[in-house]
């Protein structure tokens, strides 16, 4: 991927990002983070590129940042890190990076894999913290 490349890397990614989003928000989208449960890795106001292609062909993996509907509040979408996958139950345990200020699977239980479509892959804002969001930072 583009990590470690010079200036052309981010530019290439940005153009690819724009092209991808033009193609359709079905597989690629941009979201803004609210709340501090993923601090310090993600901070409120961070803007992320998310994609919905990977999980059509494979399961989420521990360490990945995923979006999931809040099982307790309709209409709210959460961003958390996958802590573990229960293959038998087809469910994922989700955790915030800041356990003391996170409402996650410890409260609402494991999330069915079918409810997890989106994976966060890239932070484009703020520019000084832009970069790929590799799992298990």
């Amino acid at each position: 991927m583009a990590r470690g490349r010079s200036l052309s890397g981010p530019l290439f990614l940005l153009l690819g990002l724009a092209a991808g989003i033009t193609v359709g928000r079905r597989w690629l989208d941009v979201v803004e983070v609210r709340g501090g449960s993923m601090a310090p890795f993600l901070l409120p106001g961070d803007r992320l590129l998310v994609e919905a292609h990977s999980y059509e062909s494979r399961r989420p993996r521990p360490g990945e940042l995923v979006l999931a509907a809040d099982p307790r509040t309709p209409g709210r979408e959460l961003i958390k890190r996958v802590a573990s996958i229960d293959d038998a139950a087809s469910a994922a345990e989700l955790r915030g990076d800041a356990p003391d200020s996170s409402t996650d699977s410890r409260e609402f239980g494991a999330i069915p894999l079918s409810a997890i479509r989106w994976r966060a892959v890239f932070r484009y804002w703020p520019p000084q913290r832009a970069g790929l969001l590799g799992p298990g930072h």
Binding site: V30, V31, G36, A39, L78, I79, G96
Partner: peptide, 22 residues
């Protein structure tokens, strides 16, 4: 018209959520 700026505007908010469960 679609601009890069409009494309990069977040379409939705995702919650790194905590209700401070005591």
């Amino acid at each position: 018209m679609l601009t890069i700026r409009s494309l990069l505007r977040p379409s939705r908010i995702v919650d790194a959520h905590c209700d401070i469960p005591c």
